[in-house]
Design a protein around this nucleic acid. Structure first.
Lengths: 334, 334
DNA sequence: CTGTTAGCGCGTTCAG
DNA sequence: CTGAACGCGCTAACAG
């Protein structure tokens, strides 16, 4: 016999009080409305019965499910996994849940997030979304915080300071004497990659004898290899430093370099502006820009909850850190 | 003015009918209860008002949120991401949603999944769970389907046929003349890894002149490197074939092999029993066992929905396929 | 046949 | 501290 879930009425009966009293006690709203003794009795009864409020009923009355919607373009890397984990943790601290919506890929037709979400949401956290896709989401002018998106998009944003990361990476390479740079720049029309490209170019613009070639690159291993081949095939002296928008691109660069008999880092240094599983799997391990994706999710949720509460969202950027590993070194003599 | 969400009453009023009629029409239960003309009018009104049923109210009345809970140990690889995507898609086809619960890691204290889930669930899909962790989940004897778990656990299971994958991998290596094997076996007490170990050992047991050494290995790049070092340091002729439980272990093996001046695949062949991002990022790319994680999630959901509906879950295994790439070849002469 | 009325489910809150 | 009303959609019972 699957014992039916106890309701607040059951608790009330067990404690010898009314439903209203139960609601107040369990909702921590009984300061001076219910005696401490009765409150204790109610808690006791709730505990022994294993009572859990029916969230559907609560939502129906309160008009909120205490739920946030996290929209991500795809869950294909551990980045989004960490993002979700951090968001869920931060939300749970304030008794909010986080549900996930995988925004349609290029191929799949756009489905209504709210239909699939199966729930009423109190706010939306949108990661790496384009402005158009965005409009679908804001169906009812829900509170919205954008992650990894342009601050000009008309919604509060929380970002990772990858411009700083790109600067740090270039700085590191300059310090090793590199002057001939190639930026393997993701060919995805996303704000985050534009920022990286801008930061790399800006830093190098102030170095008189530095050169920079930007090659649009697909965000895959073969894409990285192809772009590297293109960069090396161009006329002029061979570049000595490769800045890759992510670690998969860098893995592709490794392959092409090795195919040509070039060694990392003796002949060419490589840095990645992302630090995920691939970064430490390749040999030598990648010097890469790392950030705390969980912290990112956490900040995003805090900003969104602040927005919902009517406060000013704290939109500080998440700091990044250059992790120096074996893929970068001094320019080879000659 | 944030226009208040239209209720079914609003729709009824707009269409000039009663709420009951609206419910019937929109619930596709009007065969013979409502005229086609009226039904059309109701649909029309609902569409123009942008009506969406309040799911809290529906759930309250129906006692179900049409929601499934997917429990995963961690979301750290794209495997779980794909699993979720497949599960969500299959569930959506039957108007179910899927919410995620990240089961506690070793460090984090166990939280109540249902508290964090913020919703009433109709069933649980548990991936790679140990028997103990399981008991926490089945709080209310919910329908449960286990993924990647022992069929003896007392719940229906849907599995990936990795035993077959392990056999295929060993077969492939045997065909290239390999006889001295090392299995870098994940040191995680999980059913899936026991199955792989069993399958590798069983296949090799029938080959008279084959040898197998099993080395417990941490599921990380350094873990793979350390285990490889241990295997190569043992006395006796050097192994020529490494079977790795996942691609990160294989990446570690690559590093240790290269450190010792051994080449893949000329000196040592390497196969991985998992095929994720790292498999194609390393050089040479890994010969690996691949399966469709989305299909896995899909099958899991179908089994769970069948179980909920009182039918027999179809618990066929998900097939696997050996993808031959550059990390395996014939034993080197000598 | 076509459609309506009434009451339910459960937690919250206001007037008593 | 309690009784009763409320939120919204679903469905059994009932009426035209």
């Amino acid at each position: 016999m699957p014992s039916p879930r106890p309701t607040s009425r059951d608790v009330a009966q067990a404690a010898g009080v009314s439903q209203a009293a139960v609601s107040m006690v369990l909702g921590e709203k009984w300061r001076g409305r219910v005696s401490a003794a009765t409150a204790a009795r109610v808690r006791e009864a709730a505990a022994t019965l294993g009572y859990r409020p029916n969230l559907a009923a609560r939502q129906l009355r309160l008009g909120s499910a205490r739920t946030l919607l996290l929209v991500v373009p795809a869950l294909t890397t551990e980045y989004f996994a960490d993002l979700y984990a951090g968001a869920a943790r931060a939300a749970a601290e304030q008794d909010f849940g986080v549900i996930l919506y995988l925004s349609p890929t290029v191929t799949a037709p756009a489905r209504d997030p709210f239909a699939s979400a199966q729930s009423t949401v109190d706010g939306v956290l949108a990661s790496s979304m384009s402005a158009e896709a965005l409009s679908t989401i804001r169906g009812d002018r829900l509170p919205l915080v954008m992650l990894d998106s342009s601050p000009d998009a008309g919604a509060p944003t929380v970002n990772v300071d990858l411009a700083d990361g790109a600067r740090q990476a270039v700085e590191h390479l300059l310090g090793h004497g590199h002057r001939r740079f190639v930026h393997l720049s993701a060919d995805v029309p996303s704000w985050t990659f534009e920022v990286r490209a801008g930061a790399v170019a800006a830093r190098l613009a102030s170095v008189p004898d530095a050169s920079l070639r930007v090659v649009p690159t697909a965000l895959t291993v073969p894409g990285g290899a192809a772009a590297t081949a293109a960069a090396l095939d161009e006329a002029g002296p061979r570049p000595t430093a490769l800045v890759c928008d992510d670690d998969r691109i860098a893995a592709g660069a490794y392959k092409e370099l090795r195919r040509r008999g070039l060694q990392v880092p003796q002949d060419v240094s490589v840095v990645a502006l992302d630090d995920f599983a691939v970064a430490t799997a390749v040999d030598p391990e990648l010097t890469a820009v790392r950030f705390d994706a969980e912290l990112f999710g956490e900040r995003g949720v805090r900003a969104l909850l602040a927005l919902i509460a009517g406060a000013d969202p704290d939109d500080r950027d998440v700091p990044v850190q250059l992790v120096v590993r074996g893929s970068t070194g001094a320019v080879s003599p000659g």
